[in-house]
Amino acid sequence: MSRKQTKATPPAAARSRSAQAALPGSTLLRCMLLTQLTEERLVRLYHQGRISGGVYISRGQEAIGAATAAAGGPDDLYAPLIRDMSVHIGRGEPVLDIFRHCLGRVTGPMKGRDGNVHYGCLARGVYPMISHLGAMLPVVTGAVMARRRQGRPAVGFAYLGDGATSTGDFHEAVNFAAVFDVPVIFVIENNQFAYSTPITRQFRCRNLADRAVGYGIEGLAADGNEAVDLYRLVRGLVDQLRARPRPVLLVCDTMRMRGHGAHDDFSYVPRDLLERFTARDPLDLARARVIADGALTAAEVARLEQVCQAEVDAACQQALAEPPPDPATLTEGVYAAG
């Protein structure tokens, strides 16, 4: 359907409803906007000294999480990594809970017991990451094995960066999943840098997808900045894996367009590389795409941004007003009661 034809279709509300079913663009854009706006606010809170520890944002990588989160079904399991706030939001994490978490509030999903990028909700099938890169990959693999034994057609989404592909856990988990035909999509976000280390110091292969051959599995290379195209690719992939369970390496080319954390000026990043990816900013691409596809008008996009900003503002204000954990609870809950 051409852009012109789409625009010609009658009433806006009816068009939005039917377009919504066919086109994920507005869902993806909303997820990406919430991610970007939430992260911007978190950086500000950090520089204001209101967030302890650190803030690690995903600027430039929002499309990957948004697309892959939307492509999964209710039984699917996710293990997002550092730059995957859009996975959390896409799988239903309220922005309010993200602010609570990053502020270390007792009301947050980890009750102040972990901070920054370490959160999740097992009830929604989203595992909270630990800092050890690669460590979550076998966990998701085992979790998917368990769900499938229980008759649930689960597919796993295990996220990592180019840096984590150098770890032993990556090798162990991919090989384990391959041997047991576990349907896990290992989403490798090749964002060009692991902290300050460029990919030339991380691997020698032409594309990380080539590694799949060594595991006897399929490896796909995708543009990580085009949310709608990536969603379509992954949606089809999920259907294939449900029909014939097996792991896949999905390498998404993207760029971390900010420092490793809010403390990092990323002066080590070549400006021409940054400019190249800035020209393909996933938010800009998503905005243009939803308008081009006729999912939203430019005015509706602007309205969506306002709504997202209002949600972020309200969530931030509410979380700031909520209490920290009580030090008296320090030793509670180390063990499950049984």
Partner: peptide
């Protein structure tokens, strides 16, 4: 693969 064994068990 001890790490994958432990990790899968956790999952």
């Amino acid at each position: 693969c001890e790490s994958a064994i432990f990790g899968a068990a956790i999952g």
